[in-house]
Amino acid sequence: MIGKSMRHNGMVLALFAIVATLLIVATAQFTEEPIKRQQEQELLQVLNQLIPPELHDNDLYQSCSLVDHAELGPGSHRIYRASLNQQATALAVEVTAPNGYSGAIELLVAFTVAGEVSGVRTLRHQETPGLGDKIEIRKDDWITSFNGLTVQGADDNRWAVTRDGGMFDQFTGATITPRAVVQAVKRANLLFQQQQQQWFAAPNNCAGVSS
């Protein structure tokens, strides 16, 4: 009695498990390519917003390298190099602003070889909706106020929110979020000015490292 029940149940369940797994495995194989392409495209889209197509003719996604700098936040950060006719033109770097109102803010900042900011985008954040989330381009164009600016040395006082006497508007009611972003961009810009050569020369080594 017990033996028969066990045999029957075991077999049926195992059969179902095998069929189900097979189905999933098949789908996973089938979708592997498109998923990869989607992720690539997503990032490329942002990159293309920051580095206009006329500034580069290379595959930004492939031209990626990992760097380690305390100024960019803990851990490795990706940089994407743009070049036009083998000539370095611009560079985008992932930056972490650790002191947002509710935790770290992930930014992607792009600079031209001249050292000026060509664009900033927020990748991930947990700021207060309606208040701190104006750093998203979808909600507010505040983030574009960095475009075309350059940090003039570490003691450049203009790189601060107006509340602290700088040139960036804090949006009403919130100072912490814009302050964190401004500081992060400033740090990244300073670092870029100093590391430009090495960064452009670094090998493409992002492949296989998942973000």
Partner: peptide, 9 residues
């Protein structure tokens, strides 16, 4: 929660 700006001014 809804009007953080006004409520913190």
């Amino acid at each position: 929660v809804s009007f953080p700006v006004q409520m913190t001014s």
